[in-house]
Nucleic acid binder design. Structure first.
Length: 464
RNA sequence: GGCGACGUGGCCAAGUGGCUAAGGCAAGGGUCUGCAAAACCCUGAUCAUGGGUUCAAAUCCCAUCGUCGCCUCCA
């Protein structure tokens, strides 16, 4: 039984899907006007891990992630750069797709864009007007009427009366309630615009997700996800729109990831404390970012700094250490040692599922994996053969695979490999003659170049 | 000011009523090694603070302090 924390009810609930064996998952994607940063990566990783786990548990996941490609920021930036807004958004959509691939994130099964969903958006707005949940203002704007919505505020736990007190002073005259939000914005000169019953214009931010959800997944979905900074107003408004339109419950479960913290505050474009995904990947392996996410709780803030990244990277190395082969001459481990390894393998598998079933507790599941790592390394030290280690190592690969970890060996510039091999061959001769000073010099100089040499009775190995 | 989440060893963090409070990183000691590295073994927290409920609380309730997010665009 899979349980997950539902923002709507503030409780963990059992996952019961609308259709047996199928999970309809919608995750809010980025507004594409700039390089995506590691905060976006966190969100994408969280839901990738969730998706992979649901699939591991035998569920068919229909995963939709949208691109917001019509927006003030895109238009402004394109104008600044003197280029077409669609050329700009296209570039950043391609970039983001590449970022996701580099991070080993499975592509969504559908990736709708606002600019390609315009008829459905207009139809949606018309429907809301017909139901008197929305109204067109004289200037060509269309607003959603929050006071017509009985349970507005249920996701974020806000009440309209409370919010009015803090509402901005400069309320637009055309709104009948200060909290009403735009479904359609009348075109201003120089902006991309589409024809509509209310004149030329473009959609507001929230309506696109409601319309794309409806178009891709239908009136009701299982899980709606996104960063917790979207709870209000974005997700609140999505609920208001869709439920007013369909008269049915929209998403059954709302899942929100915590914010990535850089220097004690949320990483965001507006604060300017950004590390782009591209920049991150030029310095560290994609697995490191994933480890960082796995070691935390997806709902909590995630500390992103050199110390936590180093910890994640070392932890990753530790998991990889379990995959090292047994020496060819291994004599075989004693029966007690082998049964301990078998026991731990089974225990780790069991702990993994138990932890992940409980609101995707990856950190707990990871703990079990590390215990198996220790058991494997201990068995190898105790003389286990490759064949004896195999089942446990397969379990590591399998479970790490569910997490989306690649566990690939670090790669240097491939051309150097055969020269390093050659150097170590020569060094082996030097060592045979017990010329330790020279042997150590080679090892130290290689270390300075990023190559780590490890000596053992069976010979020397190296890695980047 | 309002709403929400949270505060576990130096750092990251699991655990939400009851066996010895997981695990990773860092640190120290040891085994192995010519020396290192890797691996393995060993060492440390009574759970922000103060009350309360209970036979029993890190785990429930109240208060205080602190951190973060949202209330404007944001993953």
């Amino acid at each position: 039984m899979i349980r997950l924390y539902n923002t709507l009810t503030r409780k963990k609930e059992e996952l019961q899907t609308l259709e047996p064996g199928v999970v309809k998952l919608y995750v809010c994607g980025p507004t594409v006007y700039n390089d995506a940063h590691v905060g976006h990566a966190m969100s994408a990783l969280v839901f990738d891990i969730i998706r992979r786990y649901l699939e591991y548990r035998g569920l068919d996941v229909r995963h939709v992630m949208n691109y917001t490609d019509v927006d003030d920021k895109i238009i402004n930036r394109a104008n600044e750069m003197g280029i077409d807004p669609f050329a700009l958004s296209k570039k950043y959509i391609d970039d983001f797709d590449q970022n996701l691939e580099d991070l080993n994130i499975l592509p969504a099964t559908a990736k709708p864009q606002v600019s390609k969903t315009m008829p459905q958006i207009i139809e949606f707005i018309q429907g809301l007007i017909q139901k008197e949940a929305a109204y067109a203002a004289p200037n060509g704007d269309v607003y959603f009427s929050v006071s017509e919505d009985e349970d507005y505020g249920k996701l974020s736990g806000r009440k309209l009366d409370d919010m009015q007190a803090g509402a901005r002073i400069e309320v637009e005259e055309t709104k009948s309630h200060p909290m009403d939000f735009a479904l359609w914005k009348a075109a201003k000169p120089g902006e991309p615009a589409w024809d509509s019953p209310w004149g030329k214009g473009r959609p507001g931010w929230h309506i696109e997700c409601s319309a794309m959800n409806l178009a891709e997944l239908g009136e009701q979905i299982d899980i709606h996800g996104g960063g917790n900074d979207l709870i209000f107003p974005h997700h609140e408004n999505e609920i208001a729109q869709t439920e007013s339109f369909t008269g049915k419950q929209f998403a059954r479960y709302w899942m929100h990831n915590g914010m990535l913290q850089l220097g004690g505050e949320k990483m965001s474009k507006s604060l300017g404390n950004i590390v782009s995904i591209k920049e991150f990947l030029s310095k560290r392996d994609a697995d490191v970012m994933r480890m960082l996410v796995l070691n935390g709780n997806y709902r909590s803030p995630l500390m992103f700094n050199e110390e936590t990244l180093d910890g994640a990277e070392k932890g990753l190395e530790r998991i990889k250490s379990a995959l090292k082969l047994a020496p060819a001459a291994a004599p075989g481990a004693a029966p007690e040692a082998l049964s301990a390894l078998e026991k731990q393998t089974a225990a780790t598998r069991e702990a993994f599922v138990a932890a992940m079933d409980d609101d995707f507790n990856a950190a707990g599941a990871l703990g079990g994996i590390f215990e198996l790592v220790r058991a494997i390394n201990a068995a190898r030290d105790a003389g286990a053969t490759g064949e004896q280690l195999q089942p446990a190592q397969d379990a590591i690969r399998e479970l790490a695979g569910v997490f989306g970890l690649r566990l690939a060996e670090k790669k240097g510039s491939g051309d150097a490999d055969k020269f390093i091999d050659l150097l170590l061959e020569v060094r082996a001769e030097v060592r045979a003659q017990k010329l330790w000073a020279l042997s150590d010099l080679i090892r130290d100089r290689l270390k300075a170049l990023g190559v780590t040499v490890e000596d053992s009775k069976q010979g020397s190995t190296w890695h980047w």
